[in-house]
Amino acid sequence: MTDGSGRAAFVRAAFVRKVVAPVLAIGVLATGAHLWWNTDVFGPDEVCGGLVSTGSAAAVLPSSGRITDRDGLDARPGDRLAFTCTVESSSFLPGSDTERIRVSGGRERGDFPFTDDGRWPNPATVSFFSGGETGATVTTSATGATGAVGQDHGWVLLPGNCTTQDGPAIVEGYAPEGSDPVKLARLLTEVADKAAERAGCLTKGPLGAPATLAAGPEPRQVGDGAVCGLTGLAFPGPEGRTEAKETVRDGSIRPTWACEVAGYATYAVTQEPPIVEGIRSSPGFKEQPRVAGRQVSGFDPQHVVADCAGVPTYFSMEFGRGYLDAVGAPGTPRIRDLFDEFVEAAGKRLGCSAPTI
């Protein structure tokens, strides 16, 4: 009996060695392959030359997978703040898609968030943030970052020390539609921090990302006698066409405010110091014709900075196809009159004193 039991134990051990052990080994390999190809376990902490944290990128991307940076960081010679990089999350699991975030750094004319070149989200629909202002609070005691995030596109302004004769520097990012805007703002703030530190222009400590963002406003009917909620502002189009919708940020007009009258015009005003500083430091900024009796400087007669009770204040107006098609038609106000009315109406809301003629 003893000899039989010993032989049975020997047979079982041999079976384990010949059958079970290889199966376990295959299982370990399969698990390792899954972790390697379908998750970010054992992956790098940073990609894009150290500018992008894989953890922050994974938080933005809606699907899980392996975080890589494809071809790495594409840096442009002559400016350490000019670069592009694409971050990917990929997986071999059935039904999974490759998701991408594109981050870039570069220089823009200081009022880029308010110009209609088709690249930037409409300022009336994005969530602006600046160290706790406009509904945002920062995650640390650091200086609050200045930026904005739309549905899938955002930007963060780099510190003023990063500005050169070519203008202010920004970090811009595109994420998959439906990404969490707060997480995108956090990622872009981190990239801005690292880019500024690498370029030697982060002198006041790290930028603080917003912990919350105000939700974008919903379109509403244009109000009678108060377009965009500003008393005295005429409809930017033919008389009687007030069936249009407007998207406007209610509440305080400080520090950044915008309104879009769909198809006709977009108005914006900001007293945000980093933005105004970037505008005044940009190439092409010069004295312009007076607006509503005020001395102004800017890039053209509808993108200007004026003194508002001692505070430099930027005003802009962009026109849509509805207005441009109606130019010259009876009842359509002139561009000059519309912009004068806007600066006057917004100035009153800001408490600006009467201009000195």
Rank of each mutant, 00 (worst) to 15 (best):
245 K>E: 05
119 R>T: 10
149 V>P: 06
121 P>G: 07
312 P>C: 03
188 L>T: 05
129 F>V: 15
319 F>R: 14
110 G>A: 09
38 N>S: 12
249 R>C: 02
127 S>P: 05
202 L>I: 13
99 E>W: 05
171 V>C: 02
263 G>D: 14
206 P>H: 12
220 R>C: 03
343 V>I: 07
124 A>Y: 12
115 T>Y: 06
230 L>D: 01
188 L>S: 03
348 K>A: 12
99 E>H: 11
221 Q>T: 14
109 R>T: 07
283 P>L: 08
271 Q>M: 07
38 N>M: 10
231 T>A: 14
102 R>H: 01
90 S>P: 00
315 F>C: 01
187 L>W: 10
128 F>I: 01
132 G>F: 12
225 G>R: 05
53 S>C: 10
210 P>C: 10
77 P>M: 01
112 F>Q: 01
82 A>M: 06
129 F>A: 11
161 N>S: 15
1 M>Y: 07
74 D>P: 00
285 F>R: 03
102 R>P: 00
297 S>I: 03
193 D>V: 15
324 L>Q: 13
32 G>F: 13
100 R>H: 06
168 P>L: 04
192 A>N: 08
180 D>V: 13
274 P>S: 11
322 G>F: 14
131 G>A: 11
148 A>T: 03
48 C>K: 14
253 I>P: 02
141 S>C: 09
277 E>W: 04
57 A>P: 04
332 T>Y: 12
295 Q>A: 14
101 I>D: 01
252 S>M: 02
120 W>D: 00
156 V>Y: 05
337 D>Y: 10
176 P>H: 08
242 T>C: 02
147 G>E: 02
247 T>R: 14
308 C>H: 04
172 E>T: 11
97 D>G: 07
142 A>V: 06
243 E>C: 07
9 A>D: 03
240 G>E: 00
175 A>S: 08
167 G>I: 12
190 E>R: 13
289 P>V: 08
286 K>Q: 10
115 T>M: 09
103 V>F: 05
68 T>A: 14
271 Q>I: 02
